[in-house]
Write a protein that binds this DNA or RNA. Structure first.
Length: 878
DNA sequence: CCTGAATACG
DNA sequence: GACTGCGTATTCAGGA
């Protein structure tokens, strides 16, 4: 096989990576985002392309030979930000660690180096892959030279060969130069012919083939275009000269210098550690060996293995850590328990603990203080063994989440490493990952667990200080910690499921799906995998000739909103929509739920993730019980399978009405919005009256629908485009709506502006209860990122404060049910509603108590409104 | 084993 | 001119 050479345009890729990734700096305070992005791309190239030769080419200095032709070459270009320039030396160090050659040449650009070397390589019969973000490089494409361009960001790439280029742009590689000569390039300050864009240029080239030929036959061009071409003939030819990549630049490096023989794992992982690229460590080979080495560097630790427990083990305050090697603590086997206090470290087999009165008494004594990581996980797991853990006073997981929800690794070793404690290995290093997870010998296990438990001790004061500085102690102690225990109870209790009902629905769906499937094949004239958009696309848009509405990066979009627009164009479309709808029900909600129902009890135990969302909401997994269908009747029937756990009981549900808009009214202190809610008016009608300037009687259904969309949009941090899409109106009309909305509710307008301004100052936004969210992208130079961050700044205090409120309501309700000695139990929380099960006799009381608690858990300047309902199944609680 | 498209919820 | 509404989870196909 031919040798493979990869040539990377270093500046271009670093530049792309820099703007694609948030401006993160590592613990040493140096910016690393460009280096990081470059590295992920490099690792992928090495893994996928497996090159025999490689080079990273860089631009040299400020001036190039092109400046002699044209002084203003690359003029007007923004100066490279210093945050990026400072990363180039680091990048070169990193390449050295990878043993990858890099090269630059005075007076020449990376393009010319690549152009020259790719020519020589091609002559030798090598296959070349050029990697860049710059379309100019496409002129190098040939039978043996592919050019891979980054699209959005850096992970998203497109590989061009001559055929793909022809398909995509309609031109040959050598015409790329003529194309650029005509259309110019703003970023390099290449003039081209003003008024000629890509479309016109391609058209001209299709007709005339080359720039030279175009001007020879200029008489064939008509009108304004001809005039423009003639007036800027010189510009066009100079531009052509500028964009032509030199294929004979005087490089002092040869193909023989580009041989790549792999890198030293040790060197690369050291530089990764140095730069703080923890997540990439797993991608360099030999991590086993590395783990061993890391383990050897750990300080000695002495763990006492005990099976007979005595009171002396417990000092009054201990860290307790319960290990499970699998995520789902409702089923995972407990590997052991570690107790660490200021004196000693103990490892206790779980059965020894469960059988020990001393241990169980200690556990359930709330006056004995316990420090843990993930109280909910710990408590639920121990409960399965009959151990009731009480007196939890510190939860490192929740503390870490509150300090910065955007950190995505809230495990003990990651938190510790962030805080400068390296005395622990990552779980993956000790236990392995994914399918390779395995229990180490008990000595190793005990040591690793003890190290983690010890860190609870070490980190407690630090994180609590930080919570205090953030004014988050109340949020932590009075909201999240008590909530964790309530959620634990809910999860452990589970929800009863009517398995037979689910199976019956599944049977019916199965036959209906089969029927539709056959009809679709009939209409398509062939069979294919109906679940594959990739296979469906060509059938719809090529074979059946339906109009293409939207494309995805991998092909035609066949999403529901596209299909809906094609609904009357072909009989097959409605069938597809129904197939999708029913297929989702079958696979996710029938089969998916049946898989996780406990065979003995017929209950489902979800897990609520309390330390995940960026806004403070909960999420639910394994299964997700927060997205059980409701909007369409077909799907809603799934809820008939969720039933009370005892005969004579009912499902009882209470939900907040428009909590987010009410929260908005309160924080924005908008008088009109507040008044509307105080007077109990229909808020969407009210908005319609304001926006359309009409009386209540004159509000049509259409007007109300539009007003409703605007209200939603406002909560999400509206954009004209977003609103225009959701209402299928023009952007101009959408803008009109938004402007009129903000005129009508001036308080909201001020709130939106102030929130974004303050957030830019401080770098974060907060909620009612001082939940924090950092938004580094607010200062991004990337338009899209910045805009998205601004919308997030507007939305998070609203969504997050609503989350605070319902969480507090859950705690209050839990107390209240206790006080009132009711048997009713909380089962689920779905963002703005609570689902309980209760004896029928309690219905009348609950109808008062639950809304009472939810409505009064906080006092806002607007009333909170709660609607309740109940019935024999969840479906009926509507 | 991971990613992207699609679809479910608030 | 940027190509776009906020927050989630699961399933399937398809490519390493």
């Amino acid at each position: 096989m031919a040798d493979k050479l990869v040539l990377i345009d270093g500046n271009s890729i670093a530049y792309r990576a820099f703007f694609a990734l948030p401006l993160l700096n590592n613990d040493k305070g140096i910016y690393t985002n460009a280096v990081y992005g470059f590295t992920t791309m490099l690792l992928r190239i090495l893994e996928e392309d497996k090159p025999d030769h490689i080079l990273v080419a860089f631009d040299a200095g400020k001036t190039t030979f092109r400046h002699k032709t044209y002084e203003d070459y690359k003029g007007g270009r923004q100066k490279t930000p210093p945050e990026l320039s400072e990363q180039f030396p680091v990048l070169k160090e990193l390449l050295d660690a990878f043993s990858i050659p890099h090269y630059q040449l005075e007076q020449y650009e990376a393009d010319d180096i690549i152009g020259t070397l790719s020519q020589s390589a091609e002559k030798k019969g090598w296959d070349v892959n050029v990697i860049s973000g710059d379309k100019d490089l496409l002129q190098l494409v040939s039978d043996h030279i592919d050019v891979t361009l980054t699209r959005k960001g850096i992970s998203n790439v497109e590989k061009y060969d001559p055929a793909f280029l022809a398909d995509k742009m309609g031109i040959r590689p050598d015409q790329v130069i003529d194309l650029k000569a005509l259309m110019g390039d703003n970023s390099d300050n290449i003039p081209g012919v003003p008024g000629v864009g890509e479309k016109t240029a391609v058209k001209l080239l299709k007709q005339f083939d080359t720039l030279e030929n175009l001007y020879e036959n200029i008489t064939e061009v008509k009108g304004k275009l001809k005039e423009k071409l003639e007036n800027h003939k010189d510009d066009a030819f100079m531009s052509k000269q500028l964009v032509t990549i030199k294929r004979d630049s005087p490089v002092t490096i040869g193909l023989e210098d580009l041989t790549y023989e792999g890198y030293s794992n040790r060197g690369v992982s050291n530089i990764f550690k140095d730069l703080g690229f923890q997540s990439l460590l797993g991608r360099v080979d030999g991590s086993d060996q590395q783990a061993e080495e890391a383990a050897e560097e750990l300080p000695e630790i002495e763990v006492e293995h005990v099976t007979e427990l005595t009171d002396e083990v417990f000092t009054g305050t201990e860290a307790i850590y319960v290990e499970m090697l699998h995520e789902n603590y409702h089923h995972a086997e407990i590997e052991g328990i570690t107790i660490v206090n200021k004196d000693k470290k103990y490892f206790i087999p779980v059965d020894a603990a469960a059988e020990s009165d001393v241990f169980c008494e200690w556990a359930k004594n709330a006056r004995k203080r316990k420090w843990v990581f993930d109280a909910k996980r710990t408590v639920v797991a121990l409960l399965r063994k009959g151990i009731h853990l009480k007196g939890v006073e510190f939860d490192l997981l929740l503390a870490s989440y509150l300090i910065n929800p955007s950190e995505n690794n809230h495990d003990i070793p990651s938190i510790a490493h962030r805080m400068g404690e390296t005395s622990v290995q990552y779980d993956e290093e000790v236990y392995g990952r994914g399918a390779k997870i395995k229990r180490p010998d008990v000595e190793k296990l005990a040591e690793h667990m003890a190290r983690k438990a010890t860190l609870l001790y070490k980190l407690k004061d630090k994180v609590e200080e930080q919570l205090k500085a953030n004014h988050q102690l109340e949020l932590y102690h009075d909201l999240e910690m008590p909530l964790a225990l309530i959620l634990g109870e809910m999860e452990h209790r589970g929800v009863q499921v009517d398995v037979e009902r689910l199976k019956d629905m599944g049977e019916e769906l199965r036959s209906r799906l089969k029927e539709i499937e056959e009809q679709v094949y009939e209409l398509a004239g062939e069979t294919f995998n109906l679940n594959s958009p990739k296979q469906l696309g060509p059938i719809l848009f090529e074979k059946l000739g339906l109009p293409v509405i939207k494309k995805t990066k991998t092909g035609y979009s066949t999403s529901a909103d596209v299909l809906e627009q094609l609904e009357d164009k072909h009989e097959i479309i409605p069938k597809l929509l129904i197939y999708r709808q029913l297929g989702k029900l079958q696979s996710t909600y029938i089969e998916g739920l049946l898989k996780v129902v406990d065979n003995d009890t017929h209950k489902i135990h979800t897990r609520f993730n309390q330390a995940l969302t960026q806004t403070g909401r909960l999420s639910s997994t394994d299964p997700n019980l927060q997205n059980i269908p409701i909007r369409l009747e077909e799907g809603r029937k799934i809820r008939q399978a969720f039933i009370p756990s005892k005969p004579g009981w009912v499902m009882f549900a209470s939900d907040y009405s428009q909590i987010e808009l009410r929260v908005l009214a309160h924080i924005a202190q908008d008088e009109k919005l507040i008044a509307a809610f105080k007077e109990g008016r229909d808020i969407h009608t009210q908005t319609a009256m304001e926006v359309f300037k009409v009386e209540a009687e004159a509000v049509t259904g259409e007007m109300r629908r539009h007003a409703k969309a605007v209200n939603f949009g406002i909560v999400y941090g509206i954009s004209e485009y977003g609103l225009s899409q959701s209402l299928s109106i023009t952007r101009k009309e959408a803008k009109e709506f938004i402007d009129r909305y903000l005129e009508s509710y001036p308080g909201v307008k001020v709130y939106m502006e102030e929130t974004v301004r303050d957030a830019k100052q401080t770098g974060f936004v907060t909620t009612f209860m001082n939940r924090k969210r950092f938004l580094p992208d607010l200062t991004s130079r990337n338009f899209n990122r910045r805009n998205a961050a601004e919308r997030t700044a507007m939305n998070t205090p609203i969504q997050g404060s609503a989350a605070d409120i319902i969480k507090k309501a859950m705690i209050d309700l839990h107390h209240r049910l206790d006080e009132e000695k009711l048997e009713a139990n909380l089962l689920l929380q779905v963002h703005d509603e609570l689902i309980l099960e209760a004896p029928e006799e309690e219905i009348e009381q609950l109808k008062k108590i639950v809304p009472d608690v939810m409505e009064n858990t906080v006092e806002l300047d607007v009333p909170l409104k709660v609607d309740s309902s109940y019935g024999p199944t969840w479906y009926d609680a509507k």
